[in-house]
Design a protein around this nucleic acid. Structure first.
Lengths: 335, 335
DNA sequence: CTGAAAGCGCTTACAG
DNA sequence: CTGAAAGCGCTTACAG
């Protein structure tokens, strides 16, 4: 059996209250007593039971993050930021994979409520009405990351999708492109996408350009396969495109793959622009020009907002919107 | 305040013991009583406190996994398998990012011990002596994933690196290549790598080929950058190479990037082969031929071994070694 | 079929 | 500076 605080107390010849004191605050304890306790801890290899402590403190020192999928680089990058922020404040993070499924998501929320996690990050999915209701009665602080929420009172962390898409499209136009295709993912799902759609249109309007409906394609997801299929379709139906703007880097790589399959070279025959700036953007050939979303920092921020609230440093509220930047690499050609 | 079992008991007009019974086993409870309790649960929106339950059961129903890095696809893929296995048995998983650092790893282990997680997966790092000692006195079941352990009694899940590298090199030789460069990562760190080195040599020996020392390069890590730098070096120093075998897919993409920078085309002028078969292998141009390691399945297995042990289904022991396969795509040319 | 009571391993007023 | 005691929210023999 693992030694308990009682074992330590007995061995050190003090009460459990005293042991508890030296292990925590450490104040109001005599030097000798403290030494004796520490020695007993050492000898018994005692490790305080955080479960018991949590029961008292009503704090588990754990955060949870929900992703539709955990194995892509989007999730990984966000998770990196969350983990760092959490760990630096002594918290750990539980990762949940919802698969985008309604019931699995709800079941997870229930589980996390029972585990009494101190905060939840809802990442990259729409916060549907059904979730919002459930969350409302949960009393666990929550922030939505990248993906608007249906309730303005629920705090979010995201980038300004409208303006990011505007900047991206403007960049392409600035490079001399006038026939630009747009591939955007999960339109039924993510309100953020409609922001991107708007930005794309606005950029055209402001530059006196029209956008052909046939050059805009809405996809199911944001993955490579979607990009391949969508890219091929766009190339087939979109007329004489000189550039394609994809709303994720994976999508963009899929487009590049579709282009090559058609005998088109990037950027010589077709320029391609992505969104996110995941590590893969740099690894592709040619390296991908893309709209950078500071995912790591956004993960950090989401966690920090939660932690500041949990630790009574700052009220949990508002919407953090991060700036995006265009990172020029080699997949876009100046016309 | 969150309602407790007492509130439910009071409302249903029964004892807390009864509430507990209907919420768990559910046996030995009269129909009416059960209905009353369930209704009270409903009305109060009661969620059992898993922390309190854990204190009794001495089980937290959580697994932890340690990665040097959480944002790459290697970790993501493994994590996907772990999460699925865990979730299907009602467990959650805590993700820890060690950064490969000695003290951070030890600190994490201590934290996990205090949190009383039910099992630990140590992923993709050598299990150093120091860790092994610490783990020995931890009494938490642990399995090492992909990365040998210094102690044969600690269970592992991995693939046969020697034989995988043998197969990979043999494949290249079978395609007519005789001047093959090898790029392998983290030699000082991971024993698995020396297995890969051996396999590479054996394949040459068995085919009557010699391997020039200048064609073998040992790198710090497994990342894209390492591959770029190492690939460039190999191309400079390695003489007339027709192929490069990299010990990770990211490394292979780095090599491709270095090759293009030198004006070499893949696979026309240089064949490149990777290791892992991460999603990126499919996304690259040309798609990467690689040695597939079933990372998702390995993650599942590691979690399942732990779970089977925790739930007293099966003793925790042994070494699960997974078969690798060669997946042919388009980065290797037949000479 | 159900309840009173003890206990899981800690922490925290309250005395002293 | 230190200890006895109560309590965090459950579960589990033990009676009945």
């Amino acid at each position: 059996m693992e030694p308990t605080i009682k074992d330590v107390a007995r061995r050190a010849g003090v009460s459990t209250a005293t042991v508890s004191r030296v292990l925590n605050g450490g104040h109001w304890v005599a030097g000798e007593t403290r030494t004796a306790v520490l020695q007993a801890v050492q000898e018994l290899n005692y490790k305080p039971n955080a479960v018991a402590r949590s029961l008292m403190s009503a704090q588990t020192k754990t955060l949870a993050i929900l992703f539709p999928n955990v194995s892509d680089m989007f999730s990984g990058t966000v998770l990196g930021g969350v983990e760092d922020a959490a760990h630096s404040r002594g918290f750990s993070v539980i990762v949940c994979k919802t698969g985008g499924g309604h019931e699995r998501t709800l079941a997870y929320l229930q589980l996390l409520a029972e585990k009494r996690v101190d905060g939840i990050i809802f990442a990259s999915e729409v916060l549907r009405e059904a979730y919002a209701d459930f969350i409302g009665q949960l009393r666990i602080p929550l922030v939505v990351l990248s993906g608007e929420s249906v309730r303005p009172e629920i705090p979010t962390v995201r980038c300004d999708d409208r303006q990011a898409a505007y900047a991206g499209a403007s960049y392409l136009i600035g490079q001399g492109h006038e026939n630009i295709g747009l591939l955007y993912g999960g339109a039924h799902e993510t309100p953020e996408q409609s922001g991107r759609l708007e930005g794309f249109h606005e950029a055209h309007r402001d530059h006196g350009l029209a956008v052909e409906p046939s050059r805009v394609l809405c996809l199911e997801g944001f993955a490579f396969k979607d990009g391949q299929v969508g890219g091929a379709a766009l190339l087939r139906q979109g007329g004489p495109l000189t550039a394609i703007f994809a709303s994720s880097d994976e999508l963009a790589l899929g487009v590049m793959s579709a282009a090559y399959a058609r005998g088109l070279r990037v950027p010589d025959d077709l320029s391609v622009m992505g969104f996110d700036d995941l590590p893969l953007a740099e690894m592709s050939l040619p390296p991908l020009t893309t709209v950078r979303q500071p995912l790591y920092g956004m993960g950090r921020r989401a966690a920090t907002m939660l932690l500041d609230h949990i630790q009574d440093i700052k009220k949990l509220e508002g919407h953090a919107v991060f700036p995006t930047t265009i990172v020029e690499r080699r997949s876009v050609r100046r016309l």
